[in-house]
Amino acid sequence: MATTSATLDVNGEAREFQGDPRQTLLDFLRLDLKLTGTKKGCDHGQCGACTVMVNGRRINSCLSLAIMHDGDQITTIEGIGTPENLAAIQRAFVSHDGFQCGYCTPGQICSATAMLKELADGWPSAVTEAVADTPAPSDEELRERMSGNLCRCGAYSNIIAAIREVMQSEEGA
């Protein structure tokens, strides 16, 4: 029996998918749900602009079928904050000018949000000297962990500064 529908939890709201099984999660969000904050940059998992969180984990929504996400909790940039009520990471991106054109920005922010959780969970990365140890959150660690998100405007160092600020304020809190 072919499966033709799915129910997704998108930013806390139940959304029915009932359509062409070819539709990616990205296109479902952008075209059907009008959640255009998630961007299409390459459609092949090569740029990170489409990054969303699924059950707390960051993924490329362009390389995932909507129909495969039955029961999953999807968090998009719209679920992180609003202009009237910015999340700390969004505020930090604004104040550090962690973008120019803004097109990769939602993906960077979703990615950074999940990345901070991965760090908190002690996940290693390709630059972790001894993978068995808990990694120290150096700038090099942050850069490696954010390397799945391209920024052609070249705001990279400002993005790292924004993430760093959020990490420090969370430590202080």
Partner: peptide, 16 residues
């Protein structure tokens, strides 16, 4: 094994 996996793709792709 951990190092090789971490050298591949991106965190987003490795999550899938």
């Amino acid at each position: 094994l951990a190092k090789a996996i971490l050298a591949g793709a991106s965190p987003q792709l490795r999550n899938k």
